[in-house]
């Protein structure tokens, strides 16, 4: 009895030491379908307090290999994700798929650079990272701090997707699909054919206000094609795992409201700064981080509708 207690105490000590050593070494991931895991990011802005861990991350484990879908907002988060995967499986991580080039989805890439690991991304992702990568690293130093940012490397894709690419993990295939410019100019989705789970990246937002860094018209147009994908559930870029395609309804309503408000601002000749203050006001209570992104979405949308 005493020896069991002592062993218990020793084990607890060991666990405490381990966690103190690595400041919580594994990222929380939950199984949303057999062999399919996700980490649900916090609905927040990237900061030194949250390790940049604000985006959802996916992990799919096949019979032979593992695919990681996005790597998080810091190398620290990436390493904790790697540790979480290793707690489930020893199989090699053959693919790291970046759903697009935003920092919260790819600042963790450096944690996965290894022989035999391919980085998969949209055919336009290398260009997006070339023009934005260094800017992101510099800009996020302010909110994230040196300790998190010093490790970040911009790791461009080694395998490009133009149209569709099928990845074989052994016993299951993933379909990576490249989309036209919508949320950003380099969005891909990942579909697990076995469990019919769709990893939508930032083409789908729930709870977190949608963020426009591409084309609002094209994004709205693309929603029907997206809805037609034969998925049972979606892991959005931000927000909870949800039923498909019902998960699209809130985002569609927001984008349509914004588009219609901005169209009439442009038609009426209301200046861009005024439009940014008032557009989509009806949506304010329906989203988190509304005041952090809505004016920006409105500004971007305005500059696009002016050319219609």
């Amino acid at each position: 009895m005493t020896s069991r207690l002592a062993m218990h105490a020793a084990l607890i000590m060991l666990a405490m030491l381990a966690s103190a050593h690595a400041q919580q070494q594994t990222l929380a991931i939950g199984e949303v379908a057999p062999g399919v895991f996700m980490h649900q990011g916090r609905i927040a802005l990237m900061s030194s307090d949250n390790d940049g861990a604000i985006a959802n991350i996916g992990v799919v484990i096949g019979e032979q290999a593992v695919a990681v879908i996005d790597t998080g907002g810091s190398v620290r988060e990436g390493r904790q994700l790697l540790a979480a995967i290793r707690a489930h499986t020893d199989k090699p991580i053959r693919y790291v798929i970046n759903t697009h080039g935003h920092p919260d989805h790819m600042f963790g890439n450096a944690a996965f650079v290894a022989e035999g690991t391919e980085f998969v991304g949209h055919v336009r992702l290398p260009q997006a990272l070339a023009v934005r990568g260094q800017y992101y690293v510099d800009a996020f130093r302010r909110s994230m701090g040196d300790a998190l940012i010093d490790d970040v490397r911009i790791v461009p894709p080694t395998r490009l997707v133009d149209g569709e690419l099928v990845l074989d993990l052994g016993g299951r295939t993933l379909v990576v699909k490249a989309w036209p410019t919508a949320h950003s100019d380099s969005d891909v989705t990942v579909f697990d054919t076995v469990t019919k789970t769709l990893f939508a990246g930032d083409l789908v937002f729930l709870r977190h206000i949608p963020v426009l860094d591409g084309s609002i018209q094209a994004w709205l147009k693309l929603l029907d094609d997206l809805a037609a994908l034969p998925a049972n559930r979606v892991v959005p870029g931000h927000g909870p795992v949800s039923a498909w395609p019902q998960a699209l309804a809130a985002e569609r309503r927001y984008l349509e409201t914004l588009a219609s408000d901005i169209r009439s601002d442009v038609t009426d000749g209301r200046p861009i700064a005024a439009a940014a203050e008032h557009a989509a006001a009806a949506e304010r209570d329906k989203w988190e981080l509304f005041d952090d992104y809505n004016a920006r979405n409105a500004t971007a949308a305005y500059s696009q509708f002016e050319w219609e």
Binding site: D104, V131, D185, G214, S215
Partner: peptide, 16 residues
């Protein structure tokens, strides 16, 4: 103040 988030002073849709 500079923009936060994933905003960048770069093209959103270079082709267009």
């Amino acid at each position: 103040k500079a923009s936060g988030g994933c905003s960048a002073p770069a093209a959103k849709n270079a082709e267009e």
